[in-house]
Design a protein around this nucleic acid. Structure first.
Lengths: 110, 110
DNA sequence: GCTTACAGTAAGTTATGACTTACGGAACAG
DNA sequence: CTGTTCCGTAAGTCATAACTTACTGTAAGC
């Protein structure tokens, strides 16, 4: 999560969407130097979002599905509450000034 | 995405998981001041991750499912390539010492 | 009408981290 | 064995943004 907070790092990660890439290939087209890309890849790797494989003198990076799964799981935590709160808000908004509501008498218990 | 990069902002967001909360209630238990929480909520709101509803002099914030859906969709972009790359890596690792490859003519075009 | 509580904004400070240049090490080519 | 290419790391600079204090506005309570 924190790893994908930086825009440049997100761009590096999105570049990996088009297949495994070496560091030099990733740096081409980005507005930062190659060492900067290396540092970003290090952060992404520590976050479990990418993995790397040595290929000769090159180093090929690719997206790690496990980190993706962790993010997915973390995100899914919020779905239940989000839907409940959103629906509650819709109802509350419907009766913000509506005095004609007769059936459900509902007060706040602080 | 960028909104959830900050750890404190993430804690505010996670606090909203237990139901809609006012700003003051959210600030209690967090290691930052109440105005700081207000600023974080502003960022989260601009990102579409939370919405707010005025309740008297209080202001109740709750998680917005739409922002959550956008994040979900963005994350799902990577699944396909992630699985393909991971599987390819597994196969490549299985033949790390197998030097009898068919020598596919693959050069970087710099 | 006056006071109190709650929240957003402004201005200013400070710390975090993103970036660059320079260097060192490892693997193929000749 | 020498040279080249590719990558990671170190040290240093600088900008971004997170945080605090102080103030203003608004809604409720007496």
């Amino acid at each position: 999560m924190a790893a994908l907070g930086d825009p440049t790092r997100r761009r590096v990660f999105e570049r990996l969407k088009s297949g495994p890439q070496a560091v030099g290939a990733l740096a081409v087209g980005l507005p930062v130097s190659r060492p900067a890309v290396s540092q970003h890849l290090k952060v992404l790797k520590q976050a479990g979002l990418v993995s790397d494989r040595p290929e000769g003198t090159r180093r090929v990076y690719y997206i790690d599905p496990r980190g993706l799964g962790a993010l997915h799981a973390w995100l899914d935590q919020f779905w239940g509450q989000a839907l409940v709160a959103f629906q509650a808000e819709a109802e509350a908004e419907a009766k913000t000034d509506a005095g004609t509501d007769t059936d459900s008498g509902e007060e706040e218990t602080s």
